[in-house]
């Protein structure tokens, strides 16, 4: 199964929800204002947010006018184009260091799927022949360390760990030392889930970032914000605050195999200029895939 198919299959549910609405919308109708209104509502119910939905509809309207589209079923092509343009921004590739370890810091609110995403990322890079090391930086939540260790066992990579309640920055420090001496390619650092309005927890995160930067010039090379695909408009606050504190370089959007559409990535990419890098499409180990804007938009638009 090709990458594209996998993507499509995983997004099937998201697709059927929005796409079936759009198909109903388009089926043999002439293009008129009511179609754009319904399109806007469909976008809003994909969590895109009112402003972005209006902007996207406007851009689709302009394109449709330019091409003199008159039938509604010609719209999907234009929609895909508009969506892809919004989603494709600079820096969508993972910034991997050719020599020496690449440090990836994984952050996010509680329950977004950080630990699981790390397990899947480890699997992805290991299958590409990279040597991976995990750092159990969630020293707060009960049994979070055990959860990461279980992933380490499953995938077959080492885990650097301290005990619960330890300083997460110290875990990252140790992981960097261990990563260097063991000649690791990629270090994936887990962190405790934190709501972005908890000032002291965000300060702790800033410290982890600082320690990493001090111990390894240029690190962390990637800061991935894990975002639950079912998240609503609060996702914007998450992206904004996490970006301010630890300079997020990419989004991992998870749980898109449900009925959630993940429309929240549109305003995040558009307004915060943070590219989406990974998509979580299911429960099995290899279900985390690199993000592909065209496939994402197509899966949403094509009936």
């Amino acid at each position: 199964m090709g990458l594209f198919d996998k993507f499509k299959q995983g997004l099937q549910k998201s697709r059927s929800a929005l796409a079936s609405r759009l198909t109903n919308l388009f089926g043999g109708r002439k293009l008129d204002e009511s179609i754009f209104e319904e399109m806007e509502e469909a976008f809003i119910s994909s969590d895109m947010g009112v402003e972005t939905a209006m902007e996207l509809v406007e851009s689709i309207r302009t394109r449709a006018r330019k091409r003199r589209i008159e039938q509604a079923d010609q719209l999907p092509d234009v929609m895909i184009e508009a969506m892809v343009e919004m989603l494709n921004i600079e820096g969508g590739e993972m910034n991997l260091q050719p020599d020496g370890p690449t440090l990836v810091l994984v952050v996010g609110v509680n329950g977004a799927g950080k630990t699981t995403s790390i397990g899947k990322l480890a699997q992805y890079y290991k299958s590409q022949g990279k040597k991976v090391l995990l750092a159990a930086g969630d020293t707060f939540r009960a049994a979070a360390i055990e959860q990461l260790v279980a992933w380490g066992d499953r995938v077959g990579v080492d885990v650097v760990r301290h005990s619960q309640g330890a300083d997460p920055a110290a875990v990252v420090f140790d992981a960097i030392q261990a990563g260097r001496s063991r000649n690791v390619d990629i270090i994936l650092c887990d962190t405790a889930g934190r709501l972005q309005n908890k000032t002291h927890l965000m300060a702790e995160l800033a410290k982890i970032h600082k320690v990493a930067a001090r111990e390894m010039p240029g690190a962390p090379h990637e800061v991935l914000l894990v975002l639950d695909g079912t998240t609503g408009q609060n996702g914007m606050n998450q992206a904004k605050v996490f970006k301010e504190v630890v300079d997020v370089t990419g989004i991992v959007i998870t749980k898109l195999d449900g009925t959630a559409k993940g429309g929240i990535v549109f305003p995040i990419v558009h307004e915060q200029q943070i590219p989406v890098k990974w998509v979580g499409l299911g429960e099995s180990v290899d279900d985390l895939q690199p993000f592909d804007a065209t496939a994402f938009a197509e899966a949403i638009c094509r009936p």
Binding site: V109, T230, T231, G235, T259, A260, I264
Partner: peptide, 12 residues
């Protein structure tokens, strides 16, 4: 239910 859930809360 997570308070941060978006429009999908309906389906869930």
């Amino acid at each position: 239910v997570d308070a941060m859930t978006g429009q999908d809360a309906v389906h869930v």
